[in-house]
Nucleic acid binder design. Structure first.
Lengths: 145, 145
DNA sequence: GTTATTAGTTGACAATGACAACTAATAATT
DNA sequence: AATTATTAGTTGTCATTGTCAACTAATAAC
């Protein structure tokens, strides 16, 4: 192992600690709303890929299918989503947000945006750009694999 | 709000999604051990600041005091930590790792290091350095406040 | 000396999540 | 075509995780 890798591991460790607290801070706020962290993740995922299947949510978010099934049942009851059995494969039930569901997600996004804004509102233009670049760089690197 | 801030918010949103999955991946591994994510965080925190008080763990990790109290009671039962009532203030019970506790934490660190290494093992020296720099830059910026 | 605050514990309970067994539909095998 | 295997999703059961409020004991503040 290279020296630079060892020191990267240390840095990642410390970043994980830092970011866990930060995510905790942001997630508290979800709780201020009606939806838990996982529910929010699922809602966002449904929004970004309409007609998604439950099994895709499981694999993308690394969640148990029984867990997802129950959350989706709840969402359906709350009229956030609708599921229609696919005509070509009756095992599949593509999920879509209702108008109400979309409104809720939009509100959630607005709220989390505000939470994030509170964190970064004091950053000047140069810092904002540099941080965004750094974040993108990190994501790119890890997604390359 | 500046344009660069708006785009930073978008980037942070996407980074949060990305990093939640990544932390999930790393945390799964903790479960392979005997300790949950929160327990691990607490153990690490105790290690890094010996003679720490329960209330400090609560504030640093943003955890409920009853929750922390129970976890610490469990740790004590498992002989991972010892608590001694402070002589100057008998309400306080400074926490320290036992020899066994330290061994366990050291093992945990070793394991998570290996998990992280698996993620970064293909990075060359230059990439490793750039990522570490980017991570440090981000932490610094958010800690400045 | 009385009241307020702080550190930590306990009880009761809700939310979160894991695992296995199940149904119904489709695909693969013979 | 009939049997077997696989897949999408649901349901039962249970353990873990986490929250909230009420409590004790010690100290600080008035």
């Amino acid at each position: 192992m290279q020296n630079s890798q060892e020191s990267l591991i240390t840095t990642i460790r410390s970043f994980n600690r830092f970011y866990t607290v930060m995510l905790g801070f942001l997630n508290q706020k979800y709780l201020g709303t009606k939806y838990s962290v996982t529910e929010t993740r699922i809602l966002f995922e449904i929004r970004s890929s309409d007609k998604v299947l439950a099994k895709d949510l499981c694999s993308k978010l690394k969640l148990d299918k029984s867990y997802v099934s129950r959350i989706l049942a709840k969402f359906e009851k709350q009229k956030l989503i609708i599921r229609k059995t696919a005509s070509n494969d009756k095992r599949q039930n593509p999920i879509a947000l209702t108008k109400f569901g979309l409104e809720q997600v939009t509100q959630l996004i607005e709220r989390t945006n505000q939470d994030i804004y509170r964190l970064i509102c004091n950053f000047d233009e140069e810092s904002s750009k540099k941080i965004a670049d750094a974040l993108c760089f990190i994501m790119d690197k890890f997604k390359e694999e």
